[in-house]
Computed example of a mutant assay.
Amino acid sequence: MKRLYLVAGARPNFMKIAPIVRALQSHGGLAYKIIHTGQHYDREMNEVFFEELGIPQPDIFMAAGGGSHAQQTGKIMLAFEELCNTERPDAVLVVGDVNSTLACSIVAKKLSIPVAHVEAGLRSGDMTMPEEINRVVTDSIADWFFVTEPSGIAHLKREGKPDAAIHYAGHVMVDNLLYQAEKLVRSDTSGFETSNFKTVCANNDARYGVVTLHRPSNVDSAEMLARIVGALREIATELPLAFPVHPRTRGTIEKFGIDLGPNITLVGPQSYMSFLHLWKDAAVVLTDSGGLQEETTALGVPCITIRENTERPVTVDEGSNVVVGTDPARIVAEVRKVLRGEGKQGRRPHLWDGRAAQRIVEVLARELS
């Protein structure tokens, strides 16, 4: 039986490979191993986390750890090369755009192992983003491209990829979202940290918003973060905000004493289910996350993206997302439009139906047979 290596390096990667694992288990025609590069080691990524996703623990943990981009990428490449030379897979599947995606693609390609890239073809055009470099390089050497939206097809064709290698599959992140949302309906949410915030808002008959910020361009500069927080403080006078704060964001807030005001509730990083429980009922989500732009579109939640660009234009063209940049006045104005009921109405894009992973597995089984 042909064997796949499924590579994941950071927590969001596991959300993307989880539906693929479930599809492989149902298909039964391909063997697989889950490879955790250890790019991000999350203490909370334990049995409960993988049980929540409906997948087994990783088969291999490489413990690459942190460091600069070059150090981390190099450590992953060395460990993955040793693994592939010890037990050679028939193909390597990578997801998204993290350093592990880039590193393992390069190693596999140099060992003449075919590479499948899930979420291929996304482009922001901003080469100051490490993720954009990872996307472009991975797609330059991959063999099969699984695309989430029409822009991905256009980019790959423009870059000279053959039509036969490009597969419009839908979005595995949405597969996972719909799977988890269904589980959430049957779950006891009283123990979630986010439940207390929601209960307080409900008791006050108040809507609420959710904020996430982690992009270096937004949070590493005290001046930039203070500008954005100024807009959030103004919004919070009209709409309570919950802010699950990323460690690097918290570091800048604390280092420079940035005042969040009384109406922004900081909480720690959340589990997938706890965070979904929070944002799915929000009046609006303000974020610089690529994945959250897509997930809010899938559930029809208004999203204000605090970036100058997006590599996921379908969320703007068809979905509930508006890209506003970092101008405080524009951020506040767009949120007020949502609160007045004048916000953008979107729809779920084509093939974001919860079956992307099945389509991917069917293609790989056919290609590898």
Rank of each mutant, 00 (worst) to 15 (best):
P313R: 04
T73Q: 03
L239V: 14
A8I: 09
N263Q: 13
P58N: 07
M273R: 15
N309P: 00
R215F: 00
E81H: 11
E132P: 01
P162R: 13
G319C: 07
K344R: 15
T189R: 00
D139Q: 02
A18S: 09
P12E: 01
P114E: 03
P328W: 02
E234K: 14
N176S: 13
G125R: 00
T194Y: 05
L102H: 02
L178G: 08
C84Y: 06
L292P: 10
K337W: 03
H167W: 12
G209C: 08
P12M: 00
A242P: 12
H167E: 11
V316G: 13
I331Y: 03
L24C: 02
T194P: 05
R135E: 07
G291E: 06
S151W: 15
L24E: 02
E51R: 14
H40E: 14
L225V: 10
V301T: 04
A142H: 06
V92R: 01
T265Q: 15
E362G: 01
S140I: 00
Y5V: 05
L368I: 09
L276D: 14
I106M: 15
V185P: 02
E52G: 13
Q25K: 15
H69Y: 06
V48Q: 15
E119N: 03
K183Y: 05
N203Y: 07
I55W: 05
A165Y: 04
M173C: 08
P269R: 12
R355K: 13
L83Y: 02
M15V: 09
H69L: 06
F256E: 11
T194E: 07
R330G: 00
D42S: 12
G125T: 03
I76Y: 12
P19L: 01
P150N: 11
R207K: 09
S221N: 05
